[in-house]
Amino acid sequence: MKNKLKVLRAENSYTQEDLADIIGVSRQTINAIEKEKFDPSLPTAFRISRLFKLPIEAIFSFEEN
């Protein structure tokens, strides 16, 4: 799954640690999502979308392999 998390985080001047604390996950999880090595759960995706005030599909895009 592709995502714009790194761009959005930079635009809002958050560090990975800041974002992890706000969302309630570890910094490693934010890093893995940004590197597209790990797909977040639905609650985490909703929390991210709520934080950046964007719909989920504006942050994450699903591509069938």
């Binding site: 309630g24 996950v25 570890s26 490693q28 999880t29 893995a32 790990f38 977040p40 759960s41 985490t44």
Partner: peptide, 9 residues
Amino acid sequence: NNFDELERK
């Protein structure tokens, strides 16, 4: 149970 989703995986 306190792990986050990636740690749990």
